[in-house]
Amino acid sequence: MNATTSPVNQYFKALQLDETDSSLSQEILENCGVDIERCLECGKCSGGCSNTHIFDFTPRKIVQMIKIGDEKRLLHMDSLWCCVACHLCVDRCPSGIDIPRIMDYLREKAITKGIPATRPTVELFHNLMLDQVHKKGRVSELYLILNYNLKSRQYLKNAELGPQMFFKGKLNPIPARVKKMDQVRRLFRPKPGQKGEAR
């Protein structure tokens, strides 16, 4: 009986620590300049996190998962799309580990790999926002909201707020526009929303 082919293996799933490698932490170090080996495992990041109540993995665990090279779970996790990048974690981290930077990197990696976001509306919002900047150089809230509500099929979401905001001058029907648009467009290679380099 070869131990590796036994059906027993599908039931016992201890993490094989010696089979994990440090390539992901190396990748994070190279791309984000964040050395996760500095982590003291104290959990101050998770304690301070604004969104830990809806996170499936807290910031401390995310750093641990990088340490054990659990890329699959990292790219599929819900926390990736719930993180609001408030920076409370890195603000409090005694080792200065820039977790939002790691989150950004992982999000980019997930998009590049075509892994669907667990919160599609978040991804949609990101894309629309980038799209506006791409087209006009600046963000126009009215068109962003209209577009978002349309595409996320929440047609009447916050509709009662619209007229109030309009009459108070908060929503400008004429979108702001940057003069040298060619420069802005050249910043986006390739276009947002497309697969490939997101930035």
Partner: peptide, 12 residues
């Protein structure tokens, strides 16, 4: 691994 709460195995 009490930080992740998962059983781990290492060969040494």
């Amino acid at each position: 691994d009490t930080l992740m709460g998962v059983p781990v195995e290492v060969r040494a």
